[in-house]
Simulated assay, not measured.
Amino acid sequence: MASKKMKIPTTIDLGDQTRTAMVGLLQANLADGIDLVYQLKQAHWTVRGPNFIGFHELLDQLHEQVEDKVDLTAERIAVLGGQAEGTVDVSAQTSRLPKYPLDAVKIEDHVAAVTKSLAAYAENVRKAIDEASEAGDEGTADLFTEISRAADRARWFVEAHKVAA
């Protein structure tokens, strides 16, 4: 990953050290979000089975929701004077999410894989809430709180497709 040095002039009232730390934190979560966006599309494109259309459409909706959070994350990086590194290449190199099983086809396989990725994403975001708060950047902490709520809701929607034991 490239330097987290501040590249965009800003008059925001956070110190350079805080801004640099927050840009790094946001960048890590940006990579996770971009990875998740494409994991959701992978599932959307390849899922097959009973209740196909409902799950297929859910995946598309979740893709759009995560993509919105990715955009907010990248914009927060810019607000803090950083340069978002949002290419698929950077995301592939730095994402902390589990690798998506490319052989998944059945709905239950996609449910398990998407749930696992959403859980990792939400866990990373919750840690980021604490880090941003401890650094004194409540704006970034609030953004991560918004993302956390959306990730938890998305996981709930996906988990609702699990077959009851």
Rank of each mutant, 00 (worst) to 15 (best):
T115L: 03
A128W: 00
H63L: 14
V79L: 09
V88D: 01
I107K: 10
R96Q: 14
D103L: 09
T94S: 08
E131P: 00
V90F: 11
Q65F: 07
G136A: 12
D68P: 02
G86K: 07
E131F: 01
G82Q: 09
A113W: 02
K127S: 11
T73H: 11
L80W: 13
D89L: 14
P101V: 05
A135M: 07
R126T: 15
G86M: 07
L59N: 11
L102D: 05
A84Q: 12
A132D: 01
A128H: 02
V66Q: 14
R76L: 13
A113S: 12
S95M: 02
L59W: 04
A92H: 03
D103M: 05
A128C: 03
V114L: 10
T73V: 13
P101C: 04
A113G: 06
D109I: 00
D130P: 00
S95L: 02
R126C: 06
K116Q: 14
A132F: 00
R126E: 15
H110Y: 06
G86A: 10
A135T: 06
K69V: 03
A132R: 00
V114D: 10
P101A: 08
E85Y: 11
E67I: 00
D89G: 01
K99I: 12
K69M: 09
D71A: 15
L59I: 12
Q61H: 14
D109L: 03
L58D: 08
G81Y: 04
E57M: 12
R76I: 10
R76N: 10
A122P: 03
E67C: 04
R76H: 12
A128D: 02
V105K: 09
A104N: 08
E67H: 14
D68L: 13
I129D: 01
K99A: 15
N124Y: 00
V111S: 04
A120W: 03
G81S: 07
A120F: 04
D109E: 15
D130L: 10
Q83R: 12
L62C: 02
A120N: 02
L58C: 05
E134Q: 14
E64Y: 08
V105M: 02
D60L: 08
N124W: 00
A120P: 01
V88W: 02
R96A: 14
V125T: 15
Q93K: 15
H63I: 03
F55Q: 05
K116V: 03
D130S: 12
D60T: 08
A128Q: 03
I129L: 06
D89R: 15
A92R: 14
D130K: 09
A92F: 01
K99N: 09
A92V: 01
I107T: 13
A122C: 11
S95P: 02
D109H: 08
G81C: 07
N124V: 00
L118T: 07
H110K: 05
T115H: 07
D60M: 06
K106T: 05
P98T: 10
D109R: 04
E67D: 15
A120D: 04
E123G: 12
D71C: 11
I77P: 06
G82P: 06
R96Y: 00
K69A: 08
P101W: 04
L118Y: 08
D130W: 10
D71W: 14
K99G: 10
A84E: 14
